[in-house]
Amino acid sequence: MPQIEVKNVGFQYAKSEERDSALKRISFSIEKGEFVSLVGKNGCGKSTLAKLLNGLFEPSEGTVLVTGVDTSNEDTIFEVRSKAGMVFQNPDNQMVATIVEDDVAFGPENLGVEPSEIVKRVDDSLAAVGMTEYKTATASRLSGGQKQRIAIAGVLAMKPEILILDEATSMLDPDGREDVMSVVKKMNEDGITVINITHDMSEVALSQRVIALKEGEIIFDGTPKALFDSTEILKRANLDLPPVGKLKRTLVESGIKIEGDTLDEDELAEEIWQSLK
């Protein structure tokens, strides 16, 4: 059984001005341990979809099953939310407590976890995101990247199986972005399913699978490589190549022959080296 099943899901907003972020009967499933990127132009329905995956929104039609549990069922909604944790875009708007450790403890406290167990989970989660030394720091004084790592720790403390990132790196500087993504990659290696909504094509290149949305419909579902190989789909989804791909395109267009189709910097250098040797 897939970990997440989205079956014929449609969603309409009540307010007309948000109509363009609606979803039109889409279906897909995600297996345990996958690292999926969700891409598309602003307003294509990505964030709506993310909120459907952990029951923050209820589908207007169709069903969403997370580990077999229907997200529309109010009795089990908190089971879904604790299993599919979510990190949002603005680091400042998802912290409830002034002090780091209190914020991380918020999720397990809500779930009624034993205090001694919460203490353990907070310590473990902070260690996992490399923020142990900031345990008693004032959250508002941290950098954006640090705040997002705290937000991830807050999700980890609920012992989730799925981590959903809703443009979690878009407000960060490159340094903070790198820190957050390396934490996310580690989570994925530890077996947590990752669904990353992003505009950053280098983040897409890190994932195993990309789902591209346009006007509420899935227009692509496959590997990053297949996406980046298809100029037509990239164009339709208003996407571009990751920086390495763009650089290579410029080189090729100006007449330098490069074999291979890597999106990795070291490998690109190697390919150039091979072609000019």
Binding site: R81, G85, F106, N110, L111, G154, M158
Partner: peptide, 8 residues
């Protein structure tokens, strides 16, 4: 809500 506020 995503962090299960009011879960129990």
């Amino acid at each position: 809500d995503a962090r299960c506020y009011n879960a129990t």
